[in-house]
Measured scan of single mutants.
Amino acid sequence: KRPMNAFMVWAQAARRKLADQYPHLHNAELSKTLGKLWRLLSESEKRPFVEEAERLRVQHKKDHPDYK
């Protein structure tokens, strides 16, 4: 399984919050909304998630050196 990218790291927590706020939204609508919200974030707001995704990528490479 591939490591999560920055969006997926962020969306993991954001999806729970959004689903709690809008329990009537279908998963497809949640995903579209999350995409729009992510694009509205500034680079500095995204930075911690980009850094975490990079950490996960490096760890994955270490754990699975033959993964392509």
Rank of each mutant, 00 (worst) to 15 (best):
R57L: 10
L37Y: 06
Q21C: 12
A11R: 00
L30T: 01
L25A: 03
A19Y: 05
A28N: 11
L56H: 06
P65M: 09
M4S: 04
D66E: 13
P65G: 10
A19V: 08
S42Y: 05
E43H: 14
F7V: 14
K62C: 08
E29Q: 10
L30N: 02
A11L: 05
H24S: 07
Q59C: 07
V50F: 05
E29D: 06
R55K: 12
A13Q: 15
Y67T: 13
R2T: 11
Y22W: 15
D20H: 02
W10N: 00
P48Q: 06
M4G: 11
H26M: 03
V58G: 10
A14I: 02
T33R: 14
L56D: 15
L40F: 08
S44D: 10
P48F: 02
W38Y: 01
G35H: 05
S44C: 04
A14N: 13
L34S: 00
Y22C: 15
N5D: 06
D63Q: 08
H64K: 14
M8C: 14
E51G: 08
A53W: 04
K62D: 14
F49P: 11
H24L: 07
E54Y: 00
D63G: 06
F49E: 14
L34G: 01
K17E: 09
A28D: 02
K68T: 02
L30Q: 01
H60D: 10
P3H: 05
D20C: 04
K68D: 02
L30A: 06
K17W: 04
V9T: 09
H60V: 09
M8I: 11
T33D: 01
Y22R: 13
K61R: 10
L18A: 04
L30C: 03
Q21T: 09
R57M: 09
K68C: 14
L41D: 01
R16E: 08
Y67C: 11
S31V: 06
S44V: 06
Q12D: 03
E29V: 15
Q21S: 07
E43V: 13
L40I: 04
A28E: 13
K62W: 06
S44Q: 05
L56T: 10
W10C: 01
L18E: 00
Q12P: 02
Y22V: 14
T33E: 14
P3F: 07
G35N: 10
Y67M: 13
D66T: 08
N27Y: 12
E45W: 15
K17A: 03
M4L: 08
L41C: 04
N5G: 08
S42L: 01
H64E: 14
D63C: 08
Q21V: 06
D63L: 06
R55E: 13
A28I: 08
S42I: 03
G35M: 04
E51V: 04
A53M: 03
P48T: 10
E29G: 13
P3D: 03
L25W: 10
V50H: 05
E43K: 15
P3T: 11
V9G: 12
V9Y: 12
E45Q: 12
A14E: 15
P3V: 04
L40S: 15
R2W: 03
F7E: 01
Y22G: 07
Q21Y: 07
T33L: 12
Y22K: 14
E43D: 14
T33M: 13
G35I: 02
Q12L: 01
L37R: 11
K1I: 02
V58N: 13
M8Q: 13
P23L: 11
L30F: 06
M8G: 11
K1T: 03
E29A: 12
L40Y: 13
R47I: 07
S44R: 15
A14M: 14
V50S: 08
M8W: 13
A53T: 06
E51D: 08
P3S: 10
W10H: 01
A11M: 07
E51R: 07
A14C: 01
K68I: 10
A13M: 03
A53L: 04
R16G: 06
M8V: 12
M4A: 08
G35K: 14
V50M: 07
L40W: 15
P48S: 04
K61L: 11
E29Y: 08
D63P: 07
E51F: 01
R39G: 06
Y22E: 03
D63S: 08
P48W: 02
Q59M: 05
L40H: 15
M8S: 11
E45S: 13
R57E: 14
A11E: 01
S42M: 03
Y67A: 14
K17T: 01
P23A: 15
N5T: 10
V58E: 11
Q12V: 05
K17Q: 09
R57K: 12
N5F: 01
R2P: 04
A14Y: 11
L37M: 15
S31C: 08
A53V: 07
E54L: 05
S42P: 15
M4Y: 05
K61I: 10
N27L: 15
E45V: 15
K1H: 08
Y22H: 04
V9K: 14
L25K: 03
D66H: 06
Q12W: 00
K46W: 02
A19Q: 12
K61H: 10
R15E: 01
E45K: 14
E29N: 12
L37I: 12
K36Q: 03
P48D: 07
R57H: 10
R55Y: 03
P3R: 13
W38M: 02
H64A: 11
N27E: 12
P48R: 04
A19F: 02
K61M: 08
S42F: 09
K36D: 05
D63E: 10
R47T: 11
K17Y: 06
Q21R: 13
R47G: 08
W38S: 02
A19W: 06
L56F: 05
